[in-house]
Amino acid sequence: MAAESGMTEMGDRPVIDAELVRRTARLARLEVTEDEIPGLVDHLEKMLDLVEQLELTESKTSHEQLASARMDGEKLSLSKWREDVVAGESDPGGPRRPEKLGENAPDWRDGSFVTPRVVGGD
């Protein structure tokens, strides 16, 4: 069932069903209700119909060729790293109002994000 057939063919169409939607939702950290599932199955089906238009031409550009993609004029260079130092409040991009970090958190105590207990417990 899995489409691991390489780059030139779309492979077998996966079966879009409630189980696939539930599994994908779990991966996406989303809850889906039973009422929502038929609509989501239908939507995914239609989207895959659309996506199956993706056909490579004879040149069969490979995934690997992307690394040497033509970059006319852009000269994308990763040589412009900024200094690896913590920006101060007066630096561009520095934390001008560091307390904002906590103000936007749903639960923030004593300088830390609060989460449910993940280890141990009662």
Binding site: V51, L54, S59, S62
Partner: peptide, 14 residues
């Protein structure tokens, strides 16, 4: 991922 995302990346290059 290869059948959908990988293919889309290749088509994007084309």
């Amino acid at each position: 991922i290869d059948a959908y995302y990988g293919r889309a990346q290749s088509v994007r290059q084309e």
